[in-house]
């Protein structure tokens, strides 16, 4: 093992070690030893840098290859998890996402689906259709929950029914209203731990519940988001449409 105090006799050995490191032929344990030395031994670091510069010409052998299209959004989601609510929202429901994308084509079938689900669940009775909003909030496959939300403008109640809920222990599910156009999200309240139940919409928010807004549910610390904005992963989201 090379010592930090190098003698003249160690120089060619360092030269080789640096060259082997830059070539990449060393074992992982040896690579870690070299990197530890790099951090504390400036003259050794210069030798490594010189090999890096010398051999960089081989980089021409790497012809451009396009990475998968969604890689960048994954990088951003990893680097900026707190500030990417809108992006997470988009990632939460892949099928929903694609419906949004294709909504010009698919809106009719979507409306049918929502109406069907609503009728099946018996929520749509004799009330005036224009006074109700319904959104199905779906997560990724394997997501913890999928919710159906129905808002009755007459009573100001937003009824939520879990389609499939798994327990989220010591966590709360918080419901958000995302105005048309994105951030900032407005909290509509923390859901009962069952994931179902109803949320009373404050009267000042009621005018904002209209066609085109998005409902979303995020996983938050027990009791709800400490910041007033979503902090946990968005597990379900959906666009609301007039029936």
């Amino acid at each position: 093992m090379t010592t930090p105090e190098q003698s003249e006799g160690d120089r060619s050995r360092d030269e080789l070690l640096a060259g082997e490191y830059v070539l990449g032929v060393l074992s992982q344990a040896d690579r870690l030893k070299v990197e530890a030395r790099l951090a504390r031994d400036k003259s050794f670091a210069r030798i490594v840098a010189r090999w890096q510069e010398n051999l960089a010409e081989f980089n021409d052998e790497y012809d451009d290859v396009m990475p998968p299209a969604n890689t960048y959004s994954k990088i951003e989601a990893r680097l900026f998890p707190q500030n990417s609510f809108a992006r997470e929202l988009a990632a939460a429901g892949s099928w929903w996402n694609s419906l949004l994308f294709w909504r010009g084509l698919a809106f009719a079938s979507l409306a049918l689906l929502i109406t069907y689900v609503s009728l099946q669940s018996g929520w749509i009775g004799g009330g005036a259709p224009s006074r109700s909003l319904v959104a199905q909030m779906a997560g990724d496959e394997g997501a913890a929950i999928s919710l159906l939300a129905q808002y009755d403008a007459g009573s100001g109640r937003l009824q939520l029914t879990p389609v499939a809920a798994k327990t989220a222990d010591q966590r709360s599910l918080q419901l958000w209203l995302v105005p048309d156009g994105g951030n900032p999200a407005i909290s509509l309240g923390v859901l009962p731990q069952s994931g179902g139940g109803a949320v009373e919409i404050p009267s000042d928010l009621r005018p904002r519940l209209k066609d085109g807004v998005t409902f979303a549910v995020s996983v938050e610390p027990f009791g709800g988001s400490p910041t007033g904005q979503p902090t946990g992963p968005v597990i379900a989201s959906g666009l609301a449409r007039n029936l």
């Binding site: 980089n59 790497y62 012809d63 451009d64 290859v65 990475p67 890689t71």
Partner: peptide
């Protein structure tokens, strides 16, 4: 990214 993806690949 095309260059760096090429390196990784």
């Amino acid at each position: 990214s095309p260059k760096l993806f090429s390196v990784c690949l």
